[in-house]
């Protein structure tokens, strides 16, 4: 794997990761900021009755790494519940920290593109921000489930 952060595969993913077609009348909408750099991710989410992600869309005002991560989430997050997605996110975080191999056999294959990011600690949050936004949306959805209403939230995270 190249040590260059801006290798071709990363740039291709980032190009896909600017934004996806917005969900109409999404069940949950969450906007999360990274206070360090001003990156902003908006996630719209619909879930099945068992809490698994049914569909999501995103809009990213952020760097290449953030947009690439959002594109990967678009591909793989549907079908996961909050606990499963948190495990994936924490595994990615640990890989970026150099605490385990990235990608491991059970990881999403695209995690390989983030391997060069491990050497740049200041950029780890760029990759994790979309994951945190989706997790925040799932938490908002769970919190409002009893109330039964739709949720819109804006948060400063990471």
């Amino acid at each position: 794997m190249s040590r260059d952060l801006y290798h071709q595969r990363m740039l291709e993913l980032a190009e896909r990761g600017d934004a996806s077609e917005r969900l109409a009348d999404a069940e949950v909408s969450v906007t999360l900021d990274n206070p360090l750099c001003g990156d902003r991710v908006r996630i719209d989410l619909d879930c099945a009755g068992d809490g698994r992600i049914d569909a999501l869309s995103h809009e990213v005002r952020g760097c290449v790494l953030c947009r690439a991560a959002a594109a990967v989430l678009d591909t793989h997050a549907p079908g996961l519940d909050a606990d499963e997605l948190r495990a994936v996110r924490d595994g990615l975080r640990d890989g970026l920290r150099g605490e385990r191999t990235l990608p491991a056999a059970h990881d999403w294959p695209e995690f390989a593109v983030f391997e060069p990011v491990a050497a740049h600690k200041s950029r780890h949050e760029c990759v994790l921000l979309p994951f945190d936004a989706v997790l925040s949306a799932l938490e908002q959805r769970a919190a409002s489930a009893n109330g039964g209403g739709r949720t819109t939230a804006s948060t400063t995270g990471t």
Partner: peptide, 12 residues
């Protein structure tokens, strides 16, 4: 071109 990406490439 995000400022962090520009700054990262400039660092190289």
């Amino acid at each position: 071109a995000h400022p962090h990406d520009l700054a990262q490439i400039l660092d190289s």
